[in-house]
């Protein structure tokens, strides 16, 4: 016979982590925060980007490569691309989650957006690095 005084506890852990927002989704508010942090980063980067595009729009290819050869220019452009594509992926995911209700279509389009933004980031980042290094 089981000892009536023995308390059977399987997990010595409180539910505090769930109460702190790490519920069933396990990711808490990371998505929301990610959107805001990238937005903050994009405030100066977007202004700098528009100024840059104005400067480069009438230049030949060689001048673009020369501009990109500056490590500061290349680093800022890579930072912009990283923040922008991450912000874009998070934003498009919210739009899809709001309007696409059929489970397969929703999960499919979320994965598609993730793949597309990832590939666009890689393609543009490699282009920047190639311009910066090889000219």
């Amino acid at each position: 016979m089981a000892n009536p005084n023995k308390v059977d506890v399987a997990v010595m852990r409180s539910m505090l982590s769930r109460a702190r927002g790490l519920g069933a989704a396990k990711s808490g508010t990371a998505h929301w925060w990610g959107q805001r942090v990238t937005a903050l980063a994009l405030i100066p980067l977007a202004v700098w980007f528009v100024a840059t595009i104005i400067q480069l729009s009438h230049q030949p290819r060689a001048a673009v490569a020369l501009w990109m050869a500056s490590p500061i220019h290349a680093a800022l452009l890579l930072a912009l691309l990283a923040a922008m594509f991450h912000h874009m992926q998070l934003g498009l995911a919210v739009v899809i989650e709001d309007y696409v209700h059929a489970n397969r279509t929703r999960v499919g389009s979320l994965l598609l957006v993730k793949a597309a933004t990832g590939l666009l980031f890689l393609a543009s980042a490699i282009s920047v690095v190639r311009l910066a290094v090889a000219g």
Binding site: R61, V64, A65, M84, F85, A123, S124, S127, V128, L131
Partner: peptide, 26 residues
Amino acid sequence: TGVGLAIGTLVLVWWLIAAASSDAAY
């Protein structure tokens, strides 16, 4: 505008790839 800008990144990526590829592409 967010969705429109997301579509706009395609041209930015095109411009960067072209600049990194050849004079003809640029």
